[in-house]
Amino acid sequence: MTDAPLHRPSTGRTITGQANPGAVVGAGQPGTGIARDPRRLPPGAGGRLGGNPVGPYLQVAPMALTFALFLVLPILAIVVVSFWDYDSVRVIPDFLGTNYSELLFSSVTWRIYLNTVKFAVLTWALTLGIGFTVAYFVAFQVRSATSQMVLFLVCTVPFWTSNVIRMISWIPFLGRNGLLNSVLLKLGVVHQPLEFLLFSDFAVVLALVHINTVFMVVPIFNSMARIDRALIEAARDAGANSFQILLNVVIPLCRSGIAIGSIFVVTLVMGDFITVRLMSGGQSASVGLMMANQISLLQYPAAAANAVVLLVIVLIMVTAMLRIVDIRKDL
């Protein structure tokens, strides 16, 4: 049932046919955008391929159904409820714009959205710098494939452990009587414990970087691993120094990895609330935290309006970043 590409070698559009050259060429074609999906399927093409024409539909049905039930319908529910009315105990079906007007015409909202964007930009810049450097070291400076593999895993393993616990782990480190403060006091660098280390914007950004850098490392490393080493040698032969190679060869060729990493980091930070709540100790706010508070006060329509606005902002940001990369082709 998976024989379809085999019987049509002449079209050159088989799965392997378009994927293999993608290793280098794909990374080097800028600006293709998501619209040009090479495997976009013309309607009705399934029948010509032989095999059971319903096969693929049965195979994707469970996943499609899951997304329909637990992604599409819930988002529709949010949109519907965002127009409803509410009082302190219940929500009332209605068609009102007040949830949006209260949201958009409040200076608190704007401050919180700006604060969230600030977290996103800071975290994005730091994770990009750190993630790129780490990936560059592993991809280009470590020579044996086994060491590369091991170091890559060292960077990715924490991704599979609990974020909440990784945040809590900073407390003994950054607290008033924490490790960092005792060391600084002992060294005489400061004369009283630094208060800004924990429960501050500093702590929030630190934890966000701590947790999200992996989302930069993996796609950037992936892009770098696919760069043909002959290109770098050619640049060197042509007289480029390491910095010029980095700037003119490596960075352009891993722009897709950078874009994918950026999408992950920005969307995760824009929707974050747990990091902000735990690490700021109530000193700071984010859109996610605002929503969580509205939810805990049972103000579902207000939270829903907030969610719609947040979703629109995130989608605009992602669409902008997707102009740089065709995710499907760069897998």
Binding site: L71, I75, I78, T267, G271, A304
Partner: peptide, 19 residues
């Protein structure tokens, strides 16, 4: 949809399914 599912903030999915 799969890509959208990755980028839609978690709290939004949580709220949506709850609602």
């Amino acid at each position: 949809l799969a890509v959208a599912s990755l980028i839609v903030p978690s709290i939004l999915v949580s709220l949506g399914i709850g609602l």
